[in-house]
């Protein structure tokens, strides 16, 4: 694996660390993007630019609208207002995910979507765009697509070796562990030759060892010239690999900057990661956890409160909205369920 920087990757110095700051070479631009669920503005982003060849982390408490924003960017949900400019080209407000994927924007999902009853290798081969054999009539005549299929298979095998999954090649994807599925999903998305890779919580539920190799793969992709946006909860991970961090809260982008700058940003840290995120928990007289500067007791079990869970307290309402969204994504034309 190459460890040399991609020449196009510029340093972060001199980029203004304010929400909506302009970047010299954005691959993705968003202007006034709004997604409303009833009275709730789940996403309300004024302006955002994602620099090419960087790894950009998208962080924020649960219910901040990160996944909804991801869905809007990738076409799985349609914004009420605003649209995406990808590679300098304005995309229509209502665009299907498959069209965006064909333009070079690929995503993974928070809840891994492995194709359980297809072998790992078939999962991989599916990723390739513009396959001749995917058209109905040519599909009937193997000589028309066999050559392409063989080269696809060769490529898929190479990627599987790189992701250390070649021993699982012919197993059903459903037999993989949760972490392996995350790897497979990432490897599969690379088969599409993406320019922009969007990872929704790539390390959630993955053990520390596998997380490390996953993160190496992510930085490897950047060094090959891809641009990466990922949603993450773990600040250590963000520190380790992100070039730039975008912080969302209540649907808005409240801060941008390098990981160091963001973790020194008092407002972000206090309000969205909990002011005690790097210190031990403190307890009041009754043994309840004191959290953040609100000083409100939390009703979680005191000994299992992690950063993530502390964030859960924000509002359940928004999570419900997320669920509705998931349904809407299926019903593109907005039919309610």
């Amino acid at each position: 694996m190459t460890t040399t920087d991609h020449p196009g990757r510029i340093p972060t110095d001199g980029i203004e660390a304010v929400p909506g700051s302009s970047k010299p070479d954005p691959i993705l631009e968003v202007d006034t993007m709004v997604r409303q669920f009833g009275g709730l503005r789940a996403v309300d982003v004024e302006h955002l630019e994602i620099q090419r060849h960087w790894i950009t982390a998208l962080i924020g408490p649960n219910g901040a609208g990160k996944t909804t924003f991801f869905n809007l960017l990738t076409g799985f949900d349609t914004p009420n207002e605003g649209a995406v400019e990808f590679n300098g080209e304005a995309m229509p407000r209502r665009i299907s995910p498959n069209k965006l994927a064909r333009q070079g924007m690929v995503r993974t999902f928070q809840l891994t979507k492995s194709l359980t009853r297809l072998p790992v290798i078939e999962n991989m081969k599916l990723g390739v765009k513009e396959q001749r054999g995917e058209r109905f009539l040519p599909a009937l005549i193997k000589p028309l697509w066999n050559e392409q299929e063989e080269s696809i298979e060769e490529r898929a095998d190479k990627l599987l070796v790189r992701f250390k999954m070649d021993h699982m090649r012919d197993e059903f994807a459903g037999t993989l562990s949760g972490g392996q599925r995350k790897l497979l999903e990432m490897a599969r998305s690379l088969m599409t030759d993406p320019e922009l890779v969007m990872l929704d919580e790539p390390t959630a539920g993955v053990n520390p060892a596998l997380t490390q190799s996953l993160l190496q793969h992510v930085t490897g992709l950047r060094d090959e010239g891809m641009t990466i946006i990922f949603v993450e909860h773990d600040m250590d991970v963000v520190h380790e690999i992100a070039d730039w961090v975008v912080v969302m809260a209540e649907g808005k982008i409240i801060a941008e900057g390098t990981p160091d700058a963001i973790s020194k940003n008092e407002a972000v840290v206090d309000a969205y990661l909990g002011s005690h995120h790097d210190s031990d928990l403190t307890f009041d007289d009754e043994g309840d956890v004191i959290r953040g500067d609100e000083g409100q007791p939390v009703h979680d079990e005191p000994d299992v409160v992690h950063d993530d869970e502390r964030e859960v307290a924000h509002d359940d309402e928004r999570d419900v909205a997320h669920d509705h969204r998931a349904d809407d994504a299926h019903n593109e034309d907005g039919a309610t369920t």
Partner: peptide
């Protein structure tokens, strides 16, 4: 003939998870 082809693979991927197929550019 159809199901052994890439066309059939797309159908099966839709059976398994339609959104995954769409994220990979399949209509």
């Amino acid at each position: 003939l159809l199901m052994r082809s890439p066309w059939g693979r797309v159908l099966k991927s839709i059976r398994e998870d339609e959104d995954a197929a769409r994220a990979l550019g399949k209509n």
